[in-house]
Design a binder for these strands. Structure first.
Lengths: 211, 211
DNA sequence: GCAAATTAATGATTTATTCAAG
DNA sequence: CTTGAATAAATCATTAATTTGC
């Protein structure tokens, strides 16, 4: 069930909205500048960590460990051991969906170990939470069966206690998060080899990504 | 097989993240500052539209939940006729999931008719798309039945043509969006009466929202 | 011992659901 | 009851591990 598709095509959107070259950095839920201080809400980014360094590391060459920062040409975030360690520590501590402030701080700390952005932290928690959940589900279902591999059976060691705890503090059922959103300039020149397709998007790319 | 893992634990992060007072405005997907220009990526927000208008709505004494804080001054976006009109026009034009740039521009334009933020535009498209979809599904299913209210049966007028068209131009199957994320100062003083619970969250609120 | 080929993880997005303000 | 806002589930896409052929 899915099958979306699209055909669209006409209706020329005329000029509406002239195109600029900035990239907005949209979307982050936010508290809503409430009352009074609607003033500014200065925004600062975290390019702080965007060190230009990253030599065009080829690959391997440095084997595991020194992950160090990041991505060379810069594709996606590649967490270092330290970063993962801290994130897991926080997760085990009960954190599930950090709010904007928390993300900011975590990002700041993790930045010490390698390039990282707020969204990476946000996504990490989302993914980790979801994957822990499916892992549990898988295990619970497999228990009555003959597990075979993947040792679904908890070793019954002290660690088991931890497991239980985690389970107990499953994440939130539903809360209303408050993230903030803003725009940011977007570097148009992508150059990245991969898919440079959708360029028809001149004025108002009706079909954002055709992909 | 990866298992990064690490026993973590050590590394005492000591002070881990001192708390500041800014609110980050995180999260907006982005292109990825790839290679070279890791430079800056200046970010600008749209508070442009954050008119202080909306009277300091109290929050009615806090009634049930109000989870989070939110704003006293204003609660959620209340679109004007002009805004809705333009958005629908764009939707009918084929736009479904505008990218950061598009959102920025749309927001800018709509801002002329009333307070609005990028996220409002983003959500509007998400919701409108989803709801048009379910509406269609309902209609298609309800046809063989006795719909009762909500006039599931299309009037078979000229408008029907439009309906069909919409169907045809369903939204995208899957594309990789490019949003950008950044942080923004967050007004700490929220004061909102609503649930000020989880206050144990001094340093690192392990359990963000208990709700 | 390497590097292309394959597979397992997991970062990043999109879609589906749910909650709740008005 | 309509619909803005937010979260969770489903997917897609890359990258790191592994495996395999020389």
């Amino acid at each position: 069930m899915k099958v979306h598709q699209l055909g669209r095509g006409f209706w020329e959107q005329e000029p509406l909205l002239s195109l600029g070259c900035k990239r907005l950095r949209p979307l982050a839920p936010k508290l809503h500048s409430n009352s009074t201080d609607t003033t500014t809400v200065s925004s600062f980014d975290l390019k702080t960590f965007i060190r230009p360094d990253c030599g065009p590391r080829k690959l391997d060459a440095n084997r595991h460990s020194p992950p160090v920062e990041t991505h060379p040409g810069g594709t996606r975030w590649n967490p270092t051991q330290e970063q993962i360690g801290i994130l897991e520590m926080l997760y085990r501590g009960g954190m599930r969906t950090p709010n904007a402030q928390q993300i900011e701080q975590i990002t700041e700390q993790l930045g010490k170990y390698g390039k990282i952005e707020g969204k990476n932290v946000f996504y990490w928690f989302q993914n980790h939470k979801a994957r822990e959940r499916q892992k549990q589900k898988r295990n619970s279902l497999g228990l009555g069966h003959c597990p075979r591999n993947t040792a679904p059976i908890t070793p019954i060691t002290l660690d088991t206690r931890v497991e239980i705890i985690m389970e107990r503090e499953e994440d939130s059922p539903y809360k209303r998060k408050c993230r903030s959103w803003s725009f940011e300039e977007e570097e148009m020149s992508r150059s990245s080899s991969k898919e440079v397709e959708n360029r028809t998007l001149e004025l108002f790319p009706l079909h954002p990504e055709s992909r």
